[in-house]
Deep mutational scan, measured.
Amino acid sequence: ENVVSAPMPGKVLRVLVRVGDRVRVGQGLLVLEAMKMENEIPSPRDGVVKRILVKEGEIVDTGQPKIELG
């Protein structure tokens, strides 16, 4: 899985990584606000952040790609 998608609709509060960052499985990639709760979205695997496809403040839909890992 190279693309991390939104598990639920919500607002991107914070992006916790930058392009080029090495990430580990379970590491937080971003914080999504859904139903007035903050949810940290974890990396599904070890890898390197290739692209960030969302911006802080953006509203995302379920299944929308957010971060691409290499």
Rank of each mutant, 00 (worst) to 15 (best):
G28N: 10
G20C: 13
L32C: 08
R51D: 05
P65W: 10
V23I: 08
L32F: 12
V15Q: 00
T62W: 11
R51C: 10
E56H: 06
G28V: 15
T62V: 13
T62A: 15
P44A: 04
E56G: 05
R14D: 00
K66A: 15
E40T: 15
T62I: 13
E56R: 09
D21L: 09
M35D: 14
V31L: 08
V31W: 05
M35T: 07
R51I: 07
P65G: 10
V48A: 04
M8G: 08
V15N: 00
K50C: 14
K11E: 02
S43T: 04
G10Q: 06
E33S: 09
V12G: 00
V48N: 04
D61S: 14
K36P: 04
D46C: 10
L69C: 04
N39A: 12
L53N: 04
S5R: 15
V4T: 04
L30H: 00
G47W: 05
K50F: 10
T62E: 12
K50H: 10
K36G: 15
T62R: 14
R22F: 14
P44C: 06
M8E: 05
L69D: 01
V54S: 01
R22Q: 11
G70L: 13
K66I: 15
V60A: 03
R51A: 12
L53H: 07
L32P: 00
L30G: 00
Q64P: 02
M37H: 10
R18V: 10
L30K: 00
G28E: 04
G10W: 09
E68Q: 09
V19N: 04
D46T: 09
A34T: 13
V17H: 02
R24Q: 11
V23S: 01
P42M: 12
M37R: 13
V4G: 04
P7G: 13
E56N: 07
G28R: 08
E40N: 08
G63S: 07
N2I: 14
V54D: 01
V49Y: 00
L16Q: 01
K55V: 12
P7R: 11
I52N: 00
K55I: 11
D46Q: 07
V54C: 07
E1V: 14
D61T: 15
R18E: 10
K55A: 11
E56Q: 10
R18G: 08
R18Q: 11
E1D: 13
G28S: 13
M8F: 15
G57Y: 05
P65K: 08
I52V: 10
S5A: 11
Q27W: 05
N2W: 15
L69F: 10
Q27D: 09
Q27A: 05
R14M: 06
P42W: 09
R51S: 09
G10A: 07
G70H: 14
